[in-house]
Computed example of a mutant assay.
Amino acid sequence: MGNMNKETESVIEMVWRHQKDHIVEQLTYLQEHAWVLFEKYENIMRLMHSKAATHMQLISEAFQDISRLLQTEANVQLKALEGLENKTLNFTSLMSSMKEMQEKIRDKKLKWRERCDIAVKTSVMNAQLEEMLTMKRVIDGAISPLQTHEWRGIRHFMKPIPDPLCFDPESANPNLRVSIDLTQVKFQPSTENLKDRRHCFEPGLYVLAMPGFQSGLHYWEVDVGLKSNWIIGVVKGLVERKGITELSPPHGYFVLRKHKDYEFYGLGSLPLMVKTSPIRIGVSLDLIRHHLAFYDADTAKMIYEYSDCSLDKGLFAFFCPGVPIRVEDWRSMKLCL
């Protein structure tokens, strides 16, 4: 009986040691796992705090930029109002002088010198009146000079509204297909024998957008995707559409060309310093200040600009979806509305 008790105790002791070792092993694993999780979540919390601080800094800078832009806008408007007030005062003075002159003219006893003086004053008044009739210049000057590059840091808060453009099928090269809604164009070889080709570009794979631009500020965006080559810009409405023409300002073309990935050209033969290949291109046209600029629409970084060029009324947005070299090139170029 005593031997059996000893054997039982021995078995129990052995089972306990086995269980204890297993429990210790499990506790050790749980402890290690808990420590790994603790370090992981500690790193996550540290990263979240860092990102939160960065976001707070960005938001603070964004609101500072908004405040600066609004102050610039206010200064422009105040300057324009001062000009209008001066014009108004001049107009009041002119009306008073006209009334005084009318009274003199009614006097039939005017001397020759007085009549000459009235004629001179009338000429001056006509010039002043002509100037007042051009108040539109002052009003145009009240339009904010803020260009697209000034919303670089706050593009999610403030961004120009794109003009409602659509592709003009009549101007499209026969090998370009324009979508039914006139917002997409792509290369598609044509086998049709079109009768009327008076208004289309040939042999260039070009197309225009409507309506044209006569005055003011304009902005539009183009989704170029991952295309390896394309051309975007503006062109004078009277350019020759037939034959091969150099796409340069002397010939009426103001364009940005993508030749291949990360290789862009404006004027000249040297490529531009562009580190990325934008998916969307923003085009800003200012006919008041004769300025044209191209941007990466997603980052607001300027790619190229034309300044003080012969940009005036009668311009049209100009596009070339490119020659297919790889799969992406067969996809459409899209106007972003």
Rank of each mutant, 00 (worst) to 15 (best):
D181W: 02
L70T: 07
D308L: 08
L30P: 00
R331Q: 12
K186D: 03
A119K: 08
V283C: 03
V120R: 11
Q19M: 13
N43L: 10
A74P: 00
I154N: 15
Y306W: 07
L47D: 10
M135V: 14
R257P: 00
E130Y: 12
T134N: 15
I288M: 09
I180S: 14
A52L: 13
Y29G: 04
E100C: 10
M48E: 13
E39L: 12
I23F: 15
V76A: 10
E42A: 10
L315I: 01
E7S: 08
L182W: 03
L84D: 02
F319E: 04
M333F: 01
S179G: 00
Q57K: 11
H22D: 10
D329R: 02
M1A: 13
E7I: 11
M135T: 12
K87W: 06
Y41W: 10
N86W: 02
F213C: 00
L129Q: 09
M125W: 14
L110D: 11
M48T: 13
L292H: 00
F294Y: 10
V24H: 12
I288Y: 15
A172L: 01
H290M: 06
A209C: 04
K275G: 04
L146R: 14
Q77F: 11
K111H: 12
A297T: 07
V11I: 15
K121N: 11
P324H: 04
H156D: 13
L30F: 11
V76H: 08
L270K: 14
L58S: 10
E192P: 00
T276L: 00
V178I: 15
V15I: 13
H199A: 12
G225I: 02
T54Y: 13
Y295I: 02
G204F: 07
A317S: 05
L176C: 05
Q26W: 11
R155T: 07
S144Q: 11
M48V: 15
M210C: 08
L226M: 07
L70I: 10
R106Q: 13
P162M: 04
D298F: 05
A74D: 08
D296P: 04
T92Q: 09
F254H: 11
A80V: 03
A34L: 09
W151C: 15
K159D: 09
V207L: 03
Q188P: 01
G266H: 01
V207Q: 04
Q147C: 15
V24R: 14
Q19Y: 13
L208V: 00
A62D: 11
G243L: 04
C309I: 03
D117E: 13
Q102E: 11
S67W: 01
L292C: 01
Y265W: 04
T122K: 02
T299G: 04
V138P: 01
M95S: 14
F318M: 05
S67C: 06
N43S: 14
L285N: 03
S96Y: 09
G233S: 01
E170S: 15
K159H: 07
Y306S: 03
I105H: 03
Q31E: 14
I143D: 08
R326A: 09
T88D: 05
E170N: 15
H149G: 02
S310V: 07
W330I: 08
V207Y: 00
C116W: 15
S144T: 15
L256H: 05
L335A: 01
V274D: 02
R106K: 12
W16D: 06
P278Q: 06
D117I: 05
A317K: 03
